[in-house]
Amino acid sequence: MQRYLLMRLGQSLLLLFGALVLVFWMVRLTGDPAALLIARDFASPEQLQEMRTALGLNDALHVQFIRYTGDVLRGDLGYSLRFRQPVREVIFAALPITLLLSTLAMAIALTVAIPLGVIGGVSPGSWKDSLARLVGLLGQATPTFWLALILIWVFAVNLRWLPSFGVDGPHSFILPAFALSIGAVGQLVRLTRSAVLEIRNEDYIRTARSKGLSPFTIGLHHIARNASIALVSVVGIQFTYLMAGSIYIESIFAIPGIGWMLNEAIRNRDFVLVQSLTLFIATFAVLIHLATDVIYSVLDPRIRHR
C-alpha cells in the first residue's frame, strides 16, 4: 500500500514537471506581450524594445525557463503582466470563488443525476429509464454558455428572481452553478445508470433477487454501495472538468474566478499568468487524480495490485 502510494506520488511529481515544461514552451510559441501592453499612440520600435527589456522578455528562452522553474520551486509563480500583481495573489483571490462554484455545480449534478441514474438503471427499458437517458443526453447536448444566457434571460430579466451577474452573495451562485452543472448532470446520469445496470447483472445481485429480497433493499444495500465506488472515480475528474467549464460560465456571469482569469490571460497574452494558471490547474487535477486513486484503492483493494 505504502509503496503504491509512493509510486503514485512520484508519478504525480514527474507529471507536474512535464506540465511545467510543456506549458512554458507552448505559451512562447507565438506573440509578444509588450506590443499589447504599450499604449498604441506612443509606441515607437525603440520603446517596445525598452519595454521588453524591462519585463525580462529579451533574455534567451532557456534563461527565462530556468529562471521560471527556479521561481516556481521557491513558490514564486511570477508577476502577472495583465493584473500587475504577483500571480500567486491573483490566483488565490480567484480560487475560492471557482471552488465554491464548482462544488455547488457538483452538488447539483449529484443530487439530480444519482437518483435519476439509479431509477433508470434499476428498471432498464421502462419509461423511467427513457427519462433518465433523455436527461443524460440532453445534459450533454446543451452548450453551457447557451443555457447560461437563457437562464439569465428567464430568471434575472423576466422573473427578477436572481441576479444576472457578479458575486454579491449566495444567491449570485445559483444561476451559474446550474448552468455549469448541466454537462456533469448528463455525464453522471449516464455513468450512474450504466454502473447500476452493470452491477445489477452481477451474480450476487441476481442471487439476492432470486432469494426474494425486495428491489428496494437490493437497490439500497447492494447497488447503491457498489455504484458509489464507481462514482468516486468519476466525481473527482468531473470536478476538474467543472473547473475548466467555468471559463465560459464565469465570463458570462462576470464572476472573477479561475476560468474568467484564464480567459483574460489568454486574451491579453499574459504569458506568466497563462502558464502559471495552466500549471496550477494541472496541479490541481493531478492532486485530484491522486486523491481519487487513493480513495479508490482503499475502497477496492484489487486496484493496488494492478
Binding site: L22, M26, Y241, A244, T278, A282
Partner: peptide, 13 residues
C-alpha cells in the same frame, strides 16, 4: 501528462 491537464484548458490554451 496530456491527460492530467483538463482537456478544455489544454484545448483553449
Amino acid at each position: 501528462l496530456l491527460l492530467s491537464i483538463p482537456y478544455l484548458v489544454l484545448v483553449i490554451v
